[in-house]
Design a protein around this nucleic acid. Structure first.
Length: 415
RNA sequence: GUGGAUGUAGUUCAAUUGGCAGAGCACCGGAUUGUGGUUCCGGGUGUUGUGGGUUCGAGUCCCAUCUUCCACCCCA
């Protein structure tokens, strides 16, 4: 084998693709039933869009983004995430003028240069939904509800929802300061990563897995104590809605979203069975992003999820997504006359919407029937010398083994 | 980017101290030339990830490289 698939990418083969289709169509149906409409944006964008939205210091920008120059030496990037392009498109197409609220969903590949692992790829497929134009806590809950409904429709059970509020820029500032005050006396004891985090993103300290850091972080001040009155109220209202919608959740004050632009609600859906890469989806409110990109003050809340991890979860829970489509009929043709008549029948039946399979390279009667069985066809349509002579087609039900002879013209009606 | 494992047939796995690369499943063909699934018979389908090295001889030992996996980092 001379050529190999690039590292961190994968083919979706026919044996898998029907599972993907099932999950994707379930997401589409769910989003649609919540009033979300699809938006499709390009796979690459100007580099600056992501630098501006994700924050230049973020890992995504620093080490994970695929950048390249085109022939006019414009710097472009394969999109590492879906929200910024949606926001770009929203602003560019003046969608705020068309409707007060825009509810959008997207599906497609994202790209991050990262070390591959189970459930983590360099080209991976995400779905996402964004509700743009309202600050109302109902929509925070609706976005979460969209995800739980989606998971329920797929039949997934072992998924946890954790929510948090990261506050607004105001209380956020106070909190970061409190964290720095708290951790600074311990700086010598912290792991090198955490010493670094203290300078760049204090909140990341709360997440560290090194036992000693963990024990120090255990007594650190909680974000929830630093929320101002308005943020607190918003967070409570989101929870009220979740309760009304019958959605179970845990509050986890340690949730930190990776990207800079989040405000208020932040949440994650986790599957504890998945190992290290256990976040199925995550999201939150990003009232600050529009300002960051386009200078307009537009509130929004959204979610993004990964299909790979979803499919892994479905596998560990052994949930059957239904097999691949089975053909209605397989043509078994023996003899030259039968081949002619059968080919015509094949074309007619396909024209009227049936799925019919025929393979001229299988010549023996037995080989054709075997193939019909192999492909799980519902019926075998048999035409041989006998049928030709009598102007009929033998129809065999491959499940029951029952067989009947019918008039050549009436085949379509029976199947 | 850091640390640690891994790789043999389509697939799951064998192969003794270095001594002719094998088995189940799958696949293909056949079992009175018109009846599939079950059964029986036959067939191994391979650059042992790749490239070097040691050796009379390497799947096995050494070096490099790639892939995948585990953890970190990060996140979907």
């Amino acid at each position: 084998m001379q050529y190999k698939i690039p590292r961190g990418t994968f083919d979706i083969l026919p044996s898998e693709s029907h599972r993907w289709q099932k999950v994707i169509s379930t997401f589409r149906e769910t989003a649609l039933s919540f009033g979300y409409e699809e938006i499709v944006t390009p796979i690459f964008e100007q580099v600056e869009l992501f630098e501006r939205s994700s924050g230049e210091s973020s890992d995504i920008i620093q080490k994970e983004m695929y950048r390249f120059q085109d022939k006019k030496e414009r710097w472009l990037a394969l999109r590492p995430e879906g929200t910024a392009p949606v926001v770009r498109s929203y602003l560019e197409n003046h969608m705020e003028a068309g409707a007060r609220i825009n509810k959008l969903y997207y599906i497609g590949p994202m790209f991050r240069y990262d070390r591959p692992q189970a459930g983590r790829y360099r080209q991976f497929y995400q779905y996402g939904a964004e509700c743009i134009g309202s600050h109302h806590p109902f929509y925070d809950a609706e976005i979460i509800s969209l995800q739980t409904t989606f998971l329920n429709r797929l039949g997934l059970k072992d998924i946890k929802l954790e929510i948090n509020s990261v506050g607004c820029p105001n209380c956020s500032k106070d909190y970061d300061k409190a964290l720095i005050d708290y951790f600074s006396p311990h700086i010598e004891e912290l792991c090198p990563d955490c010493q670094n985090r203290l300078k760049t993103k204090p909140r990341r300290l709360l997440d560290c897995k090194v036992p000693h850091c963990k024990s120090i972080a255990g007594k650190a001040p909680s974000m929830l104590d630093y929320l101002d009155a308005e943020c607190r109220k918003h967070f409570e209202q989101v929870q009220d809605y979740l309760k009304l919608m019958n959605i179970p959740y845990d509050i986890n004050p340690r949730i930190v979203r990776g990207l800079d632009y989040y405000t208020h609600t932040a949440f994650e859906f986790l599957n504890p069975a998945l190992g290290a890469q256990n976040a199925i989806s995550g999201g939150g409110r990003y009232d600050g992003l529009f300002n960051q990109i386009g200078g307009k003050d537009i509130p929004a809340v959204g979610i993004a999820g990964g299909f790979e991890r979803l499919l892994l979860s479905l596998e560990t829970e052994m949930i059957d997504l239904g097999g691949k489509a089975k053909p209605d009929a397989y043509l078994v043709l023996v003899g030259e006359e039968a081949r002619k008549k059968g080919t015509k029948l094949l074309a007619d039946m396909r024209q009227s919407g049936f799925s019919v399979i025929y393979d001229p390279e299988k010549e023996s009667f037995k080989a054709q029937l075997k193939a019909a069985d192999n492909q799980s066809a519902r019926y075998a349509l048999i035409i041989g010398e006998d049928e030709i002579a009598r102007g009929i087609v033998t129809v065999k039900n491959l499940q029951t083994g029952e067989q009947q002879e019918i008039d050549a013209d009436e085949v379509s009606e029976l199947v």
